[in-house]
Write a protein that binds this DNA or RNA. Structure first.
Lengths: 307, 307
DNA sequence: CGTATAATG
DNA sequence: CATTCTACG
């Protein structure tokens, strides 16, 4: 059994104070992909990653983004888009910069995102598997929807953030094709997981009708997920396990009663190559009373693979 | 009996959470001068000023400075250096901008400080008295002491903050002379109180020997207090009551064990015209177990006048 | 070490 | 309605 989690922690220092370490110890995952770690390496709280190997790309935007992968085993290779990922063995106090064994040709559209700490890929060897942690730009509304002004006080930007997200999507689709091909050539399965900042379908958002003009549920964004997902390429593992469930949502606004009323969005995913996806036996989100307080505005998405 | 307090609250919203309202209700002051209120009027917590009349100059630096005077009686005049002070009657929900009955000729050096929310003067009528709340710039080290680099990581500014403070001191000395004369001409006593950001003498700071090159205890700063204080002009009321006491300190760094070890500075004062000063029967600081937690890095300085 | 803001989500 | 950062104290 292989237990894999993805979790947007929204600031590991805050999440830790709310019981992240207990969750990590209790949940007994083999792999945990983290997003929005938002912490320079020297300020990572002691012991916050327990006995896991850490691979981390903090990016260069102080206090923002930052993706990591925690693994029980030592990775055989670590790839990111920036200067190189930081790696640390369990119990070790210092990190080292790890250059990838081979460097990818980066999709042109992604170069502008390379130093933002948004993507990290890790090769494992106990099982033939590559795991990736993604924090996809949240984006914004296109210019014509900002005029309409349905959403309150955000300053209009002429659609700049929306268009930037679309460029990321274009580049990342190409990256995914390459990553799948590399994995296939090496006889590995591949799973890319994290915060995609897009709800895919009507089941993936509480009020789909009222949100068709909301960033994160725009037709163009949803169409991009249609494009990268297919039974032959990448499969939405949790949806495959729960084809008719509303949710399970993975994000709720901090505001109002969103969480209490389960008025959420499913925007955190595990997208796996077909064979790996078929091996999934159980999966869902941890919005559990058993883990006491809410650790983040996102919940962990955990899948057990019989792999 | 007239009970007068001055208190640098270092953010009224934070202080409120630590029991400011209880202190205010229990202490039964007639006048409370506040500094570093650090809060725009619309964000003042409901009821934080109890049943007092509020006079407030928030200044125009978001989240910084801001001086207020709370009074049991309605002031007959309110003067500040900016656009006009805000006043609010007890229980009233809206503030109004109050223009002074007569506007001072402002000392030339003070014009640069006029919109920073550092000074407010209030005339009372039940007793012939003018009370003022002052938040004096903290300043910095002169250039030659920055080179020496005795104090750690602060970025050198070529003595700019020090010189700015000295300009304030020059202007404020002139203002005090005028304010005393105005009061005298009206048959009023006058008390100026607040955070002067200068410890006057050896008794006013824990480790005077080690702090002779520290901002706030520099010879030039101490000499300025020598200059404005005299038995015929303004009298340091608490020191008059406690001529031989170490302290009582009114400020302790948040860092380390300063408060626990009473390693503090006396930088918050009540300076009163001679007749008023002579009427003081009791005075000191509230660093009391009776008021539970520490409300601020400063403690209230409270004096009872038999006036 | 604590108070604020601002940008971001 | 949270998380950071930065400036200031």
């Amino acid at each position: 059994m292989l237990r894999v989690a993805t979790f947007n922690v929204n600031g590991i220092r805050a999440t830790q104070k709310r019981g992240f370490e207990n969750w990590l110890a209790a949940r007994e995952c083999d792999v945990v992909a983290l997003q929005e770690v938002r912490c320079p390496v020297p300020l990572l709280p002691d012991g916050v990653f327990g006995t896991y190997h850490l691979s981390y790309d903090a990016g260069q935007l102080a206090g923002r983004n930052g993706v990591a992968v925690l693994t029980r085993e030592q990775p055989t290779d670590v790839r990111c888009w920036g200067a190189g990922a930081l790696v640390r063995a369990p119990g070790d106090s210092h990190v080292e910069l790890r250059e990838p064994a081979e460097r990818d040709v980066m999709a042109r559209e992604l170069k502008a995102f390379a130093t933002e700490g948004r993507y990290l890929e890790v090769d494992l060897s106990d099982r033939p598997l590559t795991v990736a942690s993604l924090y996809l730009p949240k984006g914004g509304l296109p210019a014509h929807l900002q005029e309409a002004g349905r959403n309150g006080r955000e300053k209009p930007d002429g659609g700049a953030k929306y268009e930037r997200k679309m460029r990321f999507l274009a580049g990342f689709a190409r990256h995914l094709t390459r990553a799948r091909r590399r994995a296939a050539a090496q006889g590995r399965e591949f799973v890319v997981m994290g915060d995609f900042n897009i709800a895919h379908d009507k089941l993936d958002i509480k009020n789909w009708r009222g949100n068709q003009s909301s960033e994160g549920f725009l037709p163009e964004e949803r169409a991009w997920l249609d494009e990268i997902l297919s039974p032959r390429t990448l499969v939405d593992v949790v949806r495959r396990l729960h084809p008719d469930t509303e949710g399970p949502y993975s994000w709720w606004s901090w505001m109002g009663q969103s969480f209490a009323k389960d008025s959420g969005w499913r925007i955190d995913y595990q997208f796996a190559t077909p064979r790996l996806a078929r091996s999934a036996v159980r999966g869902g989100t941890d919005r559990d009373e058993s883990y006491e307080a809410r650790m983040s505005d996102h919940a962990p998405v955990v899948v057990d693979y019989d792999f």
